[in-house]
C-alpha cells in the first residue's frame, strides 16, 4: 500500500512526535508513505484572509502538483487542518475554469496539476485501507485496562465529510479498541478546541479546553488520543493553564493515536515520541513497559 505523504509544518515542530510515530507505525503495517518533495505550508485557514482565497488555494495546490509529479499515489495528510485545506482545494480542480487559472499561476514554478489524485486523512487510511484486523494483528502489548478518550476534534470528520460519521464518528474509537484498550464515551469528543486562536485569544481557548478535559476526566479516561496536531498541542500545553484558571488538577496525557499504536506495537518510547508529551504519559503507560 503506497501513498505520498503531506507532512505539514507542524511535523517539524509542535507535532514532531505525530510525524515520527506515524512513520514508525506505518513501517510495521507495511504502509509506504513517501514524503512529497519540496512541499510547502498548506496555508491553513488564516492565509486567505491576507493573500485572498484564490492565492491561498494555489498555495495549497502546489503540493498536489508536486505529488502528481512523483506518481499516481493518493496524498495522505496527518493533520486535520492540512487535510481539510488540501482536500477542499483538490475538489475545486473539477471546475475547469479554476483549474486553468490555478495552473496558469503554478506554471510560474514549472508546475501543473491535473486534479486526479485523492486527498485522504491518515486516520481514514488506517481504518478504511489498512483495516482494523491488520491493525490488531500487529499488537504485541495489548493495552488491557487502559481507558482512552478518543478526541476527534472539529474539522477531522466534518470538513469534507468523506469518511466516518460526522455526528457520531467511530474510527478513532475502533483503533483504540483494536489496540486492546477501552474507548470511553465523553460528551466533548467533537467540540472545537479553538485551534490557532490559542495564540491570539488564549483566554477563549482555555475556556473551550476546560469542558473537553473535564468530560474526558469524568469519563474515567487515563489518557486522551487525537489525530490532530493543534488539538494535541492545545490540550497538552494549555492543560496547566486550565488547571490554574479553574482550580482543577487534571493530569491527562494527550497522545497522537499513532503514538498509542506504537506503544501497543512494542516500539520503544523514543520511536513512539513519548518524551515530547508535556503531560507525562509514563505513569499511565508504565504497565505496558514504557
Amino acid at each position: 500500500m503506497k501513498y505520498t505523504l503531506y507532512p505539514g509544518c507542524a511535523s517539524e515542530g509542535t507535532a514532531i512526535s505525530y510525524h515520527h510515530s506515524a512513520l514508525e507505525v506505518a513501517k510495521v503495517l507495511g504502509l509506504e508513505l513517501k514524503e512529497i518533495e519540496d512541499w510547502n505550508c498548506c496555508g491553513a485557514t488564516v492565509t486567505s484572509s491576507v493573500i485572498g482565497q484564490f492565492a491561498a488555494d494555489v498555495l495549497a495546490a502546489r503540493n498536489l502538483a508536486l505529488a502528481e509529479k512523483m506518481g499516481q499515489e493518493d496524498v495522505v495528510a496527518t493533520c486535520s487542518s492540512c487535510y481539510a485545506i488540501l482536500g477542499n482545494v483538490n475538489k475545486k480542480f473539477s471546475d475547469e475554469k479554476f483549474k486553468v487559472n490555478a495552473n496558469d499561476a503554478l506554471s510560474k514554478d514549472g508546475l501543473s496539476y491535473d486534479g486526479k489524485l485523492k486527498v485522504r486523512m491518515l486516520l481514514d487510511v488506517m481504518v478504511s485501507e489498512v483495516g482494523l484486523d491488520t491493525i490488531a494483528s500487529k499488537v504485541v502489548k495489548p493495552l488491557k485496562g487502559l481507558k482512552v478518550a478518543g478526541y476527534v476534534g472539529c474539522q477531522t470528520v466534518r470538513a469534507l465529510r468523506e469518511f466516518d460519521n460526522w455526528e457520531n464518528p467511530t474510527f478513532l474509537d475502533e483503533i483504540i479498541a483494536a489496540l486492546g484498550a477501552e474507548p470511553v464515551p465523553f460528551s466533548h469528543k467533537l467540540k472545537c478546541c479553538t485551534g490557532a486562536m490559542a495564540i491570539s485569544s488564549a483566554d477563549i481557548t482555555v475556556s473551550a479546553l476546560y469542558p473537553i478535559l473535564k468530560s474526558a476526566h469524568e469519563a474515567g479516561a487515563d489518557l486522551i488520543v487525537t489525530p490532530c496536531p493543534l488539538c494535541q498541542m492545545n490540550l497538552d500545553a494549555f492543560q496547566v493553564k486550565v488547571n490554574k484558571g479553574y482550580g482543577t488538577n487534571y493530569n491527562l496525557p494527550v497522545l497522537f493515536f499513532t503514538q498509542l499504536m506504537a506503544v501497543a506495537y512494542g516500539l520503544d518510547s523514543k520511536k513512539a515520541g513519548l518524551d515530547y508529551c508535556i503531560v507525562s504519559p509514563n505513569n499511565a503507560l508504565k504497565q505496558f513497559g514504557v
Partner: peptide, 29 residues
C-alpha cells in the same frame, strides 16, 4: 519538550518561485 524549534527548519528550495506563483495568483484573482 523540544516542541518549539529555536532555529527555523528548512523551507522550500526556491521561495522566490513560490512568490512568483502567489503573485500571479493574486493577479488572476
Amino acid at each position: 519538550h523540544r516542541r518549539l524549534p529555536l532555529l527555523p527548519p528548512k523551507g522550500v528550495k526556491n521561495p522566490g518561485k513560490l512568490r512568483e506563483v502567489l503573485n500571479r495568483a493574486q493577479e488572476i484573482a
